[in-house]
Amino acid sequence: MLISLLQAIASGVVTGCAYALVALSLVMIYKSTDVINFGGGEMVMIGGYLAMFALLAIGLPYAGAFVFAAVVAFMVGAAFDRVVLDRMLGRALPGQSVLVAMVIATVGLSYVLKGLVRVVPYTEEVRRLAPLFAGDPVFLGPIILQRQDIAIVVIAVLLMRAWWAFFNFTLLGKALRATSQNPRAAALIGIPVRAMRMTIWGIAAIFAAMAGILLGPKLLMTPDMGSVVILAFAAAIVGGFHNLPGCILGGVVLGVVQNLVGLYISSRAIVLTPFVVIMLVLVLRPQGLFGGAVVTKKV
C-alpha cells in the first residue's frame, strides 16, 4: 500500500507539473494584461501539432521542431493581440473597460485554433508525439517514472526560474511589469505599451507551445487536448494567479490530490477533483494557497 501511495504521489507531481506548464502561460498573460486567456489550452494543442508537423512532414530534428513551433506560436500569439485585442482597446471609449470583451475574444481564439487544426491530416487519429527523452523507465526505489516525466518536472522548474529572472532582472521584463501595473505611466516614460502587450502574448504562446511539445507524448495528441486548460486554471487558482512559483506548486498539489482521490476514494472522482479544489480555494482563500495578502494592484 505504501508503494502505491508513493507511486501515486510521484505520478501526481509529474502530472501536476504538466498542468503547471500550461498554467505558467496563463499567469504570464494575466499578470501582464489582466486578460484570462481561455484560448491557452488550444495554444498548447497547436504547439504539439506544430512540432508533429515539423518532425513528420518537414523532417526536422527535435531541436528544429522546438524552434519551428516557438516561432509560429509567437507569431500566432502576437498576431492575435495586434489584430484582435489591440483593436478592441483602440476602439474603447475613454474610461470604458473592454476586459470582458477581450476575455470573450480568447474564447473565440480557442474555437478558431481548434477549427483550423482539424483540417490537418494528423488529427484524424489519436497520435503520440515522439518523446523528447525516450528509453527505459527510471526506478527510484519502488517508484517507476518515465524519462519524459522527469523532463517535464525539470523543465517546468527551469521555465519558472527563467521567467522569474526575466521579470525581475531584464529591462524587457521590467518594462512588461510596468506596462501591466500602469500602462499610462509606462507610456509616459517611453515604454512602447502596444509592443509590450504584443510581445507578452507572443512569449506566452511560446510557453504554451513548449508545454504542448512536452505533453504531447504524455497526454497524446488530439484537437481536444486543449481541455487541459481547465486543470491549468485550477493549478493557477490553487497557487495564486499572481504567483508564478505558486502556480507550479498549485499544479503539483492538484496532481497529487487527484491521485490520492483516485487511490482512496474512487477513480470516478478524479475528474471532479479540480472543480472541488477550485471552489474550496475560491471560498476559503481566494488569493490562492501560495498567494500573499489581497492588495489593490492598480496605482
Binding site: Q7, A8, S11, G12, T15, A18, L219, S227, V228, L231, G255, Q258, N259, V261, G262, L263, S266, S267, R268, I270, V271
Partner: peptide
Amino acid sequence: RISPRVTDVTTP
C-alpha cells in the same frame, strides 16, 4: 470507472 477525458491513469 474513469472519465473519457482522464489525463493520468496511475491510480486506476
